[in-house]
Design a protein around this nucleic acid. Structure first.
Lengths: 237, 237
DNA sequence: AAATAAACATGATAAAAATCATGTTTCTCC
DNA sequence: GGAGAAACATGATTTTTATCATGTTTATTT
């Protein structure tokens, strides 16, 4: 595991802060935070933190895309969540004083700040607004997890695959062409989110492609017929 | 929906408070809380709150067992969580100022307090310890949800069924005989937690019974061979 | 640029699980 | 206490999905 490059910038000038839980901080609080964080760059595929490790701070994604994964029963990877610029990562284990139950791995080159644990706890306690922001983030993650549970319980693989593409679109958006999903995942990674085998994932993407619902170009997936994809996902009415 | 019976008791004398998030309150805070809560009794099968409703307070279970369910795509019920004495219920929607995404239904006669929303928010803000308690509860729920996701993604129905029985045992414990799980669920409800069909649920319970892993008596399930059940669940090593 | 590995693809087969059908038992409510 | 409904049970069948096998394409590394 290569040591990530480090550099520092003031939080007051951070352009992603306003889209993060830290948008409630102001004035002197920002200077204080600057003194208790450090920023690092990561190459694609690097671990930000690993299952079973001890949290030493809170990660806040500056740029880049991250997958949060956990290892299942025969070592099979499960993708639990995806993170992007402005997201905090690794907050659950940190707040509840546990070891990490999941790992965070960059899906592309990334720049990520780590905010010192002691300072973060102090800030949480002295700034109820910040605490509320973190609680809301956890609340969203819980809601998302519960929706995922319902899907896995009640939908078939085809529906879940369509839903996963909509999820990727909702998370990372489109590229400039307004149809290509702005993230590159392997078929195996998609399968590890959907809860299916890599082969089934490949097959379904091919089918969707043949049905002109999506277009495939390497790892890039474009949504050609969004209404049809939504219908295939069988989203609640 | 019958109106639940109401009665009041002081929180200072509440015997379940110490096992709840409110164990951090003391002195005058308890009197204040007493003034901002009311307690009701519910018959088995009654709704405590319903999907899409607006939260008006926080529910805290005094006695009785509760299922938290959400409605899936063709109206199929999904059991997300179970609650017991000392658990808070309906906190997620309340805190994030949303409508309920799930319903809470009593599995047996129950007594449940509702704590006024405005007071609860004030208490959260003025008592960081209380906030931390709520955050820890949400953190546990999130962890549990993520574990459930991994199971649903990676385990087969047989493994999940064994796991569900272990989960019921962990949640509600045994009766006096130290082997009968202390809750009565229909096969359909168990299926709605496991993410399978009612028929498959019935069949698997019968198999487990034939294998002398469990014993069945109406809705009561006794664990006869715990190590075998753990092995069948294929719990992480 | 060649070698090697990883990712993608697709057919064939087997296993898992849902669905359909039908009957029995147990509960609930007049 | 009997009628009706809900829950439980089990066999037969079909559908879904995983697994195995094998080949091709695309990346990565030297």
């Amino acid at each position: 595991m290569k040591k990530p490059l480090q550099f520092e910038t003031g939080c007051a000038h951070c352009n992603v802060r306003m889209h993060s839980v830290f948008n409630v901080l102001e004035g002197e609080q920002l200077n204080e935070m600057t003194m208790h964080k450090s920023c690092s760059t990561y190459k694609k595929g690097q671990y930000v933190f690993a299952e079973n490790g001890l949290p030493s701070g809170l990660f806040c994604v500056n740029s880049g895309k991250i997958k949060i994964t956990t290892t299942g029963f025969d070592g099979k990877e499960q993708i639990l969540r995806l993170a992007k610029s402005g997201d905090i990562v690794g907050y659950r284990a940190l707040i509840s004083n546990e070891r990490y139950a999941s790992s965070a791995v960059t899906l592309e080159d990334a720049s990520i700040c780590i905010i010192d644990k002691a300072y973060f706890f102090k800030a949480l306690e002295s700034t109820p607004k910040l605490m509320f922001q973190v609680v809301k983030k956890m609340s969203r993650d819980l809601k998302e997890a519960e929706d995922h549970i319902v899907s896995l319980s009640q939908k078939n693989v085809r529906e879940r695959m369509a839903e996963a593409l909509l999820f990727l679109k909702a998370t990372y958006g489109f590229e400039e062409d307004q149809k290509t999903i702005n993230v590159s995942l392997t078929r195996e990674e998609i399968a590890d989110y959907v809860g299916t085998s890599t082969e089934s994932c490949i097959r379904l993407l091919s089918e969707f492609n043949q049905d002109k619902m999506i277009a495939l170009s390497g790892k890039k997936i474009s949504i050609i017929n969004l209404p049809m994809l939504i219908q295939t996902a069988n989203i609640e009415d």
